[in-house]
Nucleic acid binder design. Structure first.
Length: 108
DNA sequence: AGAATGACGCGCT
DNA sequence: AAGCGCGCCATTC
């Protein structure tokens, strides 16, 4: 493994997501300046599982828990989100915009 | 060195 | 309106 680079940035932002809030890959990518590369953000999240980064708060633009399969394998991600007061149905966040946390808007 | 993949996003048909 | 494909940047094989 070489320099984390983007990893470090993604971790930093993801780690700053407040309790009961969720953000999207594109938002993080946008905040990092890679606004067109949401993929690499999600890809970077691969290391989140090994880190203490609450990746369960990071979902795609649709508010869908696309990466829930990468967690422990079941509904852990959904359970965590519900535990934070976020309504999740069928791996999909309800009121996503209500729980949406924009790093470049909130954190900046 | 080139090609393939990756937890996405947006555009076009 | 819905569905499908392509593009972005980085990492890895």
């Amino acid at each position: 493994m070489a320099n984390e680079g983007f990893f470090q940035q993604v971790y930093k932002v993801a780690a700053q997501i407040p309790f009961g809030k969720v953000t999207s890959y594109g938002a993080i990518a946008n905040y990092l300046g890679a606004k067109g590369s949401a993929r690499m953000v999600g890809w970077a999240m691969n290391g989140c599982s090994k880190s203490e980064i609450p990746a369960h708060r990071v979902v795609n633009r649709n508010g869908l828990l696309t990466g829930k399969h990468h967690f422990q394998g079941t509904n852990l991600m959904q359970q965590l989100l519900e535990n934070e007061g976020i309504e999740v149905v069928n791996n999909q966040i309800q009121n996503f915009e209500k729980h949406f946390w924009d790093p470049m808007n909130e954190l900046l």
